[in-house]
Design a protein around this nucleic acid. Structure first.
Lengths: 208, 208, 208, 208
DNA sequence: AGTTAAACGAGACGGTACGTCACGTCTTTCC
DNA sequence: GGAAAGACGTGACGTACCGTCTCGTTTAACT
């Protein structure tokens, strides 16, 4: 695990006594990290730079995080944490419009220039550091995919989707092309693209 | 463009005189790069390390490549170059089995541990360096996607696919989920997964 | 000034905090410098070599010295520092034998092979770097010349030297030929030469 | 010997065929060397820089000179060569004014800013490279000193100088202090200084 | 006049050292 | 007694030149 997550039991790695931790320093570090990665990109993001920008000693960073990636990860989580509890999709009864909302939201989040660098930084780190990947999947991606799959399962029960369909697979058909475009930069991300994917996938989901 | 591609006009950037270039050095560098990235990973791959392993001066690398990523890119291209001319898919008449061949091949290529680090290294670099992305898309990804789309278009003419379908979009539905799993490490890559995707997508492509 | 001398006010350039300076590193650097310059000569003396021989990071050298010459300078000063307070000449009453002692000592110091390279290195650097010259003159040469002039002045008061004589000029007549031979390698340096100079100069100094 | 002097027998080292040597290249190299050393100083003078400024290949320099110092040496000699045949001093009958002419000339030559860097470069090189020193002494310094000694010898015969005086030593008393000041930068060089030295030395030379 | 061999310009090559940056650790000094 | 400040040993960066080594292209001496 790349970092000391707030809710984790303090036992696993011995580590320093988290109760003495300065929250002021912690917030300054994560905030400075977000600012810097947006400004100079992940490659030129440095621990020394974060420490200087946060007005913090380097040791304070090393005391609480294992690596640059771990800091970055927490910096992102702190921003996206609102999604953690509320990963349920709306259920208006209209499956297509519910999914459209999610896909368009995803496209918008990825296209948003402010977040772009932050999220690409994590994406790059995932290629190198498997523990970052596991953490990200467990705490961000999996909940989102599961929530979407749950909505599709509701569609099955409502008879809008063929009962033979694997909801988890369907979800990957929806998100896969979007991340494919974003991660490999094979094309533009916009609502039109999201809608086209959704339409084509839904054709394959419908009963009969 | 991160490198001096064979067919490019010699005018664009002045650059060094490529006719004097030592092919011995070039091959030693690309070979050492492949060996090292497989051995220590991309993050710990260094120009100095490549130069030492290749028995070459650092300047010889900097003379011909803009960055570590550009070297790595050529190192990959040299291996994958066989795919360049032959990006046509088989046309046995059976669209499903033709596509299955491609998808399984893609899955196998990504899962192959020897290539894994090499390809992830480029994937990571794409997040940072847009010119690497453009080059990769132009010379590797786009040809593959286009070839696949061409096969689907044949399927449309043969009446196996609904004529309203956008072949390019369909291709992204096929490859998107695979790369999504691989890049974000959200799940295992195997033939079963490829087959499931193919089956579900084809349901959406069929006439009616 | 090429270096942070012990007694200098800490104000001039802000620089690093000298109070945190590692004395162990400082001594290792100066000692390694002396060893290396004696071994390989000044031209082949490198910062990297010093750092390696001293078991020190290059940055530690660059943090405290402006250049290779500045390090070398301190390396010499540390050895010659004993002369700083005690630049007074003996006053036996016999001017000639007192001066002979000094001149023979100078000749011996320059001829001594161990010091030769060290001192020539500084001499060479003086041709290039004026600040090194100023420092050397101020801290080593000027005190020596002044002390010698003071002894001659005593000789004037004692009636051994004509009172019209400029003591400072007389000193340059004594040392000039010695350094001329040494620096331009126009001839051998030995006691005989020192004695001959002294005899001839004294002829010009005597009353009437 | 650091260079292929014009009059030397072409046998000693086989070397290249001097008859084919391009005089255009030779002059361009020496001229560029003088310009560059005056512009950037000896330390930053590079073979590559000379070659580029002279419009010449590096190999052409290495073919004819052993080192940077050898090039510089010839560059200086080419300028000072006029003094080679005419190292005789004037003999007006007045020893003091004849010597004054020489000393003031020496002071002026050293103080001249245009030559300063060129001559200091050689002076610095002498500290490192003994063969450069020998060449310089043999071809420039020794002839000058000898010519001056010859003039003093004439003074001895004319009864202006005590016959017990060693003319060679006397010459070193005259030039030593000047070069001492110049090489170690211990004081200003001007006519006043030259005159003062001369006066004091002559006091020691006079009969009785 | 034609041949041929060397010098020439150009510059790529394997190297060494440069001076800088950031790493992660360790130590000192405050609050 | 945790945190700021920052010096330390380490190692890679990208650059500048080194001296050697081909490349074609003059150029000048000998057929």
């Amino acid at each position: 695990m790349p970092h000391e997550s707030p809710g984790s039991p303090p036992s696993d790695p011995p580590g320093p006594d988290a109760s003495r931790r300065s929250d002021r320093a912690r917030r300054a570090i994560l905030s400075a990290t977000r600012d810097l990665v947006a400004e100079v990109g992940y490659t030129r993001l440095t621990i020394e730079g974060i420490a200087a920008a946060a007005g913090v000693g380097k040791q304070t960073i090393y005391r609480w995080w294992r690596s640059k990636a771990a800091v970055l990860f927490d910096a992102i989580l702190e921003v996206n944490s609102h999604e953690q509890g509320s990963v349920d999709l709306p259920d208006t009864g209209d499956l297509e419009s519910d999914l459209r909302l999610v896909l368009r939201g995803t496209v918008a989040a990825l296209a948003e220039p402010a977040n772009d660098r932050l999220q690409r930084a994590i994406a790059a780190e995932i290629q190198t550091d498997i523990s970052v990947a596991e953490e990200l999947v467990r705490r961000l991606l999996r909940p989102q995919l599961d929530a979407c799959a749950a909505r599709i399962t509701l569609g099955i029960r409502a008879g809008q989707v063929d009962e033979s369909v694997d909801a988890d697979l369907a979800v990957e058909l929806l998100f896969g092309p979007i991340f494919h475009r974003w991660l490999l930069r094979t094309g533009r991300l916009d609502d039109q693209f999201a809608d086209n994917i959704l339409a084509l996938v839904l054709k394959g989901l419908r009963p009969h």
